[in-house]
Each structure stands twice: as C-alpha cells, then as structure tokens.
C-alpha cells in the first residue's frame, strides 16, 4: 500500500448536485463571462464582417419596416421610422432572448452531459448575449434621434431602463422554462418561433397606441396586459416622443395614462414569474442529462 498524506478537507458533506439556481449563476460570474464570450465568438466565427453583422442586421430590418409601413402604407405618426425602430430594438431583444434561450441547453449538451454545471447558466448567458446585441441597435437609434434634434431627458431614460428591465426579467424566465421543456419535446422550439411572430404584431410598433385606444375603447387596458407592449411604450417614451414637435401632446395621445405605474406592475409580475420559472426549472432539470 502506498504511503498517503493525510488531507484535511474543511468542506461540509453536501449533495454534489447542490444547486441554488440563479443565485449560483451570479456567484460564478467568471464561468458566465466565459460562456457569454464563447457564444459571441461562435456566432461570428468564420465570418469576414464579424461583429459588424450586428449593425447590418438591425439597419436592414429598420429599412425594411420603414419602407413598407412608413413609405408605402403611409406613416401613421410623426417620425414613424423612429416609432418603429424604438419598438423593434426592444422587441428584438425579447425574441432573441426567448429564441436563443430556448435552444441554449440543447446547444450545450456536450458540456451538460459530461460536467456538473448549474444549468441555469445557459439561458442566462443567452439573455446576456442578446443584451449585447441590443447595443448596436441602441446606437443607431440614438444616432437617428439626435439627428432629428432630440436630446435625452431623465424621465425618458428611466422609461427606457424600466422597459429594458421588464424584458430582461421576463425573457430570462421564459428562456429558463422553455430551454428545459425543449429537452423533453423539441416542439417547444417551434412553439417559441410561432409566439415570437405573434409578439411582433401584438405590440404598438408598426401602429401607434392611439389606434389601439381608438379601436378597442374600453378594452384597451387589456392590451396593456402584454408586458412586451408595455416595454415598447416605455421605449417610445424614452426615444420617440422626444423627437416629435410637441412631446407633451404626443405623450397624451399616443401613450396610455399611468405609463410608469403599469410598467412597475409589469416588472413586479415579471419577477414573480421568474421565481416560478426557477421552481419549474428545478423540477424539469432533474431528468435533463438523461434526456439529452
């Protein structure tokens, strides 16, 4: 028998799979950073233009929407291009988080099958990668607004941040649940694609909120139950209303009353959904390694 040293291990006896969920993800920020960097480099690997694609894509998307909905169909509001673009940036953040997040666990199955890693890491990393891709859109948007003589106001910045927070929290919650569900049935990937199409048209982006209030009348508040619609309106408060001739009048006609109150309610609800999503994820993830 070999001569062995006496190693004293101070750590307690615990289950090796011990998982404190999202808290664990934030405790291991270094690993999270590496995963985010990995996904970013993977996305532009072998491409000549690289990161510039994240500028080209939103610019083309904006151009397309602008030509169709503002030029061909006639703008419904002042600075309709900004109206569309402000919505597009935040909607795209949501659909990217939801879509990439849902695929995240399947995409990392090589790692998950072989190593013990908090699996919440992957949907959260997808959300952060999507957030990174919001930056080029935001720069373009800000550039256009400034060109139209807009200057940022504190309330507007607050509105945009609140809208961003709603989408970040809700997107993470949905990504968590759907990434786990997608391991059981790939159908969930298809469901997400269908849902993201609905989202694009269920928000006041290509049409203004004033039209919704007009057509729906008393039922309009139900439209605002959609958190993404609320986030879009907050973004329009942040960018679009400031570019119009009379911002106060635009806010009155094209934004709902109690915009911020509704926004904070949505943020609170999204946080509750996130907690529920984590609980559901704990249930689903138990069988993930054997299902991959």
């Amino acid at each position: 028998m070999a001569e062995t040293a006496n190693r004293v291990v101070e750590a307690p006896l615990v289950p090796p799979s011990g998982n404190s969920g999202l808290l664990e993800v934030f405790r291991r920020r270094y690993l999270l950073k590496l995963l985010v960097r990995r996904e970013l480099s993977a996305r532009y690997q072998g491409s000549f233009l690289g990161i510039f694609w994240s500028y080209i894509q939103p610019a083309v998307r904006l151009g397309m929407y602008y030509v169709v909905f503002a030029v061909i169909m006639g703008g419904r509001t002042e600075n309709h291009a900004i109206h569309i673009f402000a919505g597009l940036v935040i909607v795209h953040y949501f659909t990217e988080t939801f879509g990439a997040g849902t695929r995240s666990i399947m995409a990392n199955k090589g790692l998950i099958k072989k190593m013990a890693v908090p699996r919440e890491m992957f949907p959260v990393a997808s959300m952060l990668v999507s957030a990174y891709h919001v930056v080029p859109g935001m720069l373009l948007l800000t550039g256009f607004c400034v060109a139209l003589g807009w200057s940022p106001d504190l309330v507007g910045v607050g509105a945009a941040l609140l809208g961003f927070a709603i989408v970040a929290v809700l997107g993470t919650a949905l990504a968590l649940v759907f990434s786990a569900a997608n391991v059981y049935f790939r159908d969930f990937g298809n469901i997400v694609q269908t849902l993201t199409q609905i989202v694009t048209f269920s928000v006041p982006m290509i049409y203004p909120y004033s039209m919704v209030a007009d057509r729906f009348g008393a039922a309009a508040p139900y439209y605002l139950l959609n958190p993404v619609a609320e986030a879009v309106l907050l973004f329009q408060r942040g960018f679009w209303t400031g570019t119009t001739n009379d911002p106060a009048a635009t806010e009155k006609t094209d934004l709902p009353d109690h915009l911020f109150l509704i926004g904070f309610a949505h943020l609170g609800a999204a946080l509750v959904v996130l907690v529920l999503a984590q609980m559901l994820f704990w249930k689903l993830e138990k069988k993930i390694p054997e299902r991959l």
Binding site: P15, S17, I112, K113, K114
Partner: peptide, 30 residues
C-alpha cells in the same frame, strides 16, 4: 459528480470534485 441526481436515496460528497466521465471532457468542438 453531481451531473445527475438520484431518484431515491442520497449522495453526499465533501469538497471539490474533478474528473472525467466516459473519456473526454465536455469540450466545445468549435
């Protein structure tokens, strides 16, 4: 290792765990 959890009974470990499961670690091929 903590990759899987048991259906019944319990597994407890003390300290940091490293190792290889079925030849080859969880590498990303790209």
């Amino acid at each position: 290792n903590g990759i899987m959890t048991p259906d019944s009974g319990k597994v407890l470990t003390r300290g940091r765990i490293a190792g290889l499961i079925a030849t080859g670690a969880g590498f990303h091929r790209q």
